[in-house]
Amino acid sequence: MTDNTLWTPSQAREFRDRLHSEGRKLVFTNGCFDILHRGHVTYLEFARQQGDALVIGLNSDDSVRRANKGPERPINCEEDRAFVLRALRCVDAVVVFNEDEPKELIAKILPDVLVKGKDWAHYVSGREVVEANGGKVVLADMVEGRSTTRTVEKILQAKTAQAEA
């Protein structure tokens, strides 16, 4: 882990430029990462293996709410989600973004590799800018049966079963 603070887009770009001067590559991915689970960690470890450093674009709380995740989401606030992500060995930095998609953030950072889950194969935000600047997009396999939505559903089912007992 490079730093335990949130980075600005400018700091992430400076980091990318420093990596380039050393002949190294920056990987970028993004998401909500609410209730971190095995699927998330597997995905992030895969993303990190695509280059020399990993920066995560983290959806702000407002951005998560607009992403049709439901009025109760996110479960964990952006500060807590960022703190947990930064604690992972495979994560070098986290940048919070408030837009509905990370296209503008990606254009500012210009990563060498953009990683998204195969469930997003139909649309990868920022693909055009990454590829236009010589970078590549890599689609990651998903861990079957692991998702925050599924975790929330299991919790609600358990709560309902307990109330009915």
Rank of each mutant, 00 (worst) to 15 (best):
S21H: 06
R66C: 00
D52A: 09
Q162D: 09
L105P: 00
F28A: 15
T160H: 13
K108W: 00
V137K: 05
D61H: 08
I56Y: 05
G57K: 02
S63P: 00
K118E: 15
V27T: 06
K25S: 12
L110C: 10
Q11W: 04
K159M: 09
E72R: 15
P71M: 03
A161F: 07
E99C: 08
L156V: 14
D141M: 02
A165K: 15
E72C: 07
P71Q: 07
V95P: 04
H40E: 04
V113I: 12
G51R: 02
M142I: 12
G70H: 03
L6S: 12
V137R: 04
C90D: 03
E101S: 15
R13G: 08
A107Q: 08
E104N: 13
D17K: 06
L36R: 11
D100E: 10
L6R: 12
A12M: 06
V94D: 01
Q50K: 14
I35Y: 05
V138D: 13
D62R: 14
N133S: 14
L26I: 08
F83H: 13
F83V: 02
D80E: 13
V152Y: 03
D52Y: 05
S60G: 09
F83T: 12
K103W: 02
S10V: 04
R13V: 06
D62F: 04
L85C: 06
F83C: 11
P71S: 13
R66P: 00
W120I: 06
L54Q: 02
T42S: 09
Q11E: 15
L6C: 07
T151C: 05
T151Y: 08
P74W: 06
H122L: 10
E101V: 13
K103C: 07
K118W: 06
I75N: 13
P9S: 14
P102I: 04
V84C: 09
Q11R: 11
K25C: 07
T148Y: 07
T29K: 06
K154M: 14
A107F: 01
Q11K: 10
D61Y: 04
L156N: 11
A82D: 01
W120H: 15
V27P: 00
R127Q: 14
E153W: 02
D62Y: 10
C77F: 03
L6Y: 09
N76G: 01
G145N: 01
A121N: 08
K108T: 01
D52H: 08
F97D: 12
M142Y: 06
Y123M: 12
N30V: 05
G135P: 09
P71T: 06
G135F: 03
F83N: 11
D34G: 08
T5C: 09
I106T: 13
E164M: 11
Q162C: 00
V113L: 04
Q157M: 05
D100V: 00
W120F: 15
A67H: 02
D80V: 14
D100A: 08
N76P: 00
I109C: 13
G51H: 02
L44I: 02
D112A: 00
R86W: 05
V94C: 01
D80R: 02
F28H: 15
D52R: 05
R81P: 01
R150M: 06
L44A: 08
A93F: 01
I56P: 04
A163M: 09
D17R: 03
K154Q: 12
V115F: 14
P74I: 03
E72T: 10
F15H: 15
R146H: 15
D92H: 12
L6N: 10
T5M: 07
K136Y: 00
D119Y: 03
